[in-house]
Simulated assay, not measured.
Amino acid sequence: MKRRCVEVDERALHKMIGTIIDPERLEDDCAVIPCGDGRLLVASTDMLHETTDFPAGMTDWQIGWMATAVTLSDIASMGARPGQVLLAVGLDRPERLRGIMEGARDCCARFGAELVGGDLDAHGELTIVSTGLGTVEAAQIVRRRGARPGDIIAVTGPLGEAQAALVGYDRHWKELLEPQPRVREGMALARAGVSAMMDISDGLALSLYDLLGVNDCGFSVDTARLPLPAGVPEDEGRELALYGGGDFELLFCAPPGILPVAGVDVHVIGEVIRERVVLADGEPLERRGYLHEWGG
């Protein structure tokens, strides 16, 4: 009897985890932990591997920067202020450690966090786990749940730049290798009163479906309004903007009246609707983007 092969992706596994722990714990970019005096601790952890996450040509400094930036981006998506970062490094060659740690330290310093420790081990493949902590007033935290029909849908910057670099547009190489978490923007948007927010690490389309999964409403975007990567033909740029990963911009929903928000570049790309669907130009948007998958 032949064994059936089944493809499993990370979001399917998240659903399984939700049968073991409270599924509401899995809804956001960070875990949320009360810490007294009306404040909340947010915590996030990310694992990156050399073969799947670090493009050829990256310096060790850039690897340390990226490993830290992706975690700070999660903290930014909750409207929180970064605090501490811990880095666990599965190291293939000891001479790489200094550059990695200096990159992580410099990223922390740039965005108001502190590198405070971690762990070190020998690995056949360079593997880094970054853990970040931040704090936010309970009244100002922004979650993925909270979007309401009539809200605008917006992003904080161009989409598809990281993927553009991977397909040969070298002008976007720095955006791919040295992502800039939108920490300042996340805190400003939280203070302004946005209703829902997340970062776009896996692509806009998948992120909209993530919002759909936790909200009782739908999302309709106008692809003519997407901020596209510079120097890329329009049709290709729109494809990259919808489905490319690695951007780390913020995707948020908000009452139209709160815009503009001082100091934040905002690109309005659509509207929250009552029907629980994800639409692009009035048609169902393909659920596609960056996903870790396992073959059966």
Rank of each mutant, 00 (worst) to 15 (best):
M1V: 11
M1G: 13
K2M: 02
C5N: 12
D9H: 03
R11P: 07
L13I: 10
H14K: 13
I20R: 08
L26W: 07
E27W: 14
D29E: 14
C35A: 06
G38W: 06
R39K: 05
R39V: 00
E50Y: 04
E50H: 03
T51Y: 02
F54V: 05
A56Q: 14
G57V: 03
W61P: 01
W65M: 00
M66Q: 06
A67M: 06
I75L: 15
G79M: 04
A80T: 06
Q84V: 11
L86Q: 15
L87P: 03
A88Q: 07
A88H: 09
D92L: 01
R93W: 00
P94L: 00
E95C: 03
R96F: 01
L97K: 13
R98I: 06
I100F: 03
G103F: 11
R110T: 12
R110D: 04
A113Q: 07
E114R: 15
L115W: 07
L115N: 12
V116W: 12
G117C: 05
D121Y: 01
E125S: 08
I128G: 10
V129Q: 11
L133Y: 04
G134Y: 06
E137A: 02
E137N: 09
A139I: 03
R143I: 03
R145D: 05
R148K: 13
G150Y: 05
I152V: 04
I153D: 01
A154Y: 00
G157A: 13
P158S: 06
L159Y: 10
A162Q: 04
A164D: 11
G168E: 01
G168K: 00
Y169N: 10
D170S: 13
D170C: 09
D170Y: 10
R171A: 08
W173E: 06
L177E: 12
P181L: 02
R182V: 05
R184Q: 04
E185A: 15
E185D: 15
G186P: 09
A188P: 09
L189V: 12
R191N: 01
M198S: 04
L204P: 13
S207Y: 09
Y209L: 12
Y209K: 09
L211A: 10
V214Q: 08
V214W: 12
N215R: 10
C217M: 11
F219P: 06
R225L: 14
P227I: 02
A230Q: 13
P233L: 15
G237A: 12
Y243K: 03
G246D: 00
D247A: 09
C253Q: 04
C253N: 09
G257S: 08
L259Y: 11
V268D: 04
I269P: 03
A280F: 04
D281V: 00
E283D: 11
L285F: 08
E286Y: 01
R288H: 14
R288Y: 10
R288M: 10
G289K: 01
G296V: 06
